[in-house]
Lab assay of single mutants.
Amino acid sequence: KELVLALYDYQEKSPREVTMKKGDILTLLNSTNKDWWKVEVADRQGFVPAAYVKKL
């Protein structure tokens, strides 16, 4: 499975999103959308801005 690194803190703004902290390592589930990537963090799945994460 592919992992991404959170480059910035992100606070979810809708139930479809997830909160992450800078430095978090997240499991990447889907990166087909260039703006929003689906990730899993702490047993929750949701979207984060693609610009806020980097593939490892």
Rank of each mutant, 00 (worst) to 15 (best):
D35I: 14
K38Y: 15
L28V: 07
V41E: 05
T19K: 04
K1C: 15
M20K: 00
Q45M: 11
M20G: 01
V41L: 15
L29F: 04
A42H: 15
L26K: 00
K38V: 15
P15Q: 09
T32W: 09
N30Y: 07
N30Q: 11
V48W: 01
V39A: 01
K1M: 12
P49K: 04
G46W: 04
G46K: 02
L3S: 08
V53D: 02
Y8W: 10
V41W: 07
P49C: 05
L3P: 04
Q11V: 14
K34Y: 08
L5A: 06
K13R: 14
K38P: 01
K13G: 08
A50Q: 07
R16M: 13
N33R: 10
S31A: 13
W36E: 04
L5W: 07
V39P: 00
K13C: 12
F47E: 04
V53K: 01
W37I: 05
K21C: 12
E2H: 12
K21G: 05
A51E: 11
D24L: 05
G23V: 01
K34I: 10
K54T: 14
M20C: 06
Y8Q: 14
L28D: 01
K55H: 09
K54L: 13
E17V: 05
E17T: 08
Y10H: 04
D24C: 07
E17A: 06
L7D: 02
A6L: 02
K38E: 14
N30C: 13
D24V: 05
W37G: 00
T19R: 06
R44H: 07
I25M: 06
I25Q: 05
A6R: 01
A42L: 14
L56F: 11
V53G: 01
Q11Y: 15
R44W: 05
L26N: 01
V53C: 15
K54A: 13
K55A: 08
R16L: 14
R44F: 05
D35R: 13
V39R: 00
V53E: 02
K13F: 05
W36S: 02
K38Q: 14
K55F: 10
V4N: 00
K34W: 08
V18T: 06
A42D: 13
L3Q: 10
W36Y: 08
Q11R: 10
L29D: 02
G23A: 03
E17C: 07
L3N: 06
P15K: 11
V18F: 09
I25P: 01
L7M: 09
Y10M: 01
Q45L: 08
D9P: 06
V41T: 15
L56T: 07
E12P: 14
D24Y: 05
D35K: 13
I25Y: 06
G23I: 01
E2I: 14
K54G: 09
K22C: 08
K38G: 05
E12W: 05
T32I: 09
N33S: 11
S31W: 08
D24R: 03
M20V: 09
F47L: 09
R16P: 06
V53N: 01
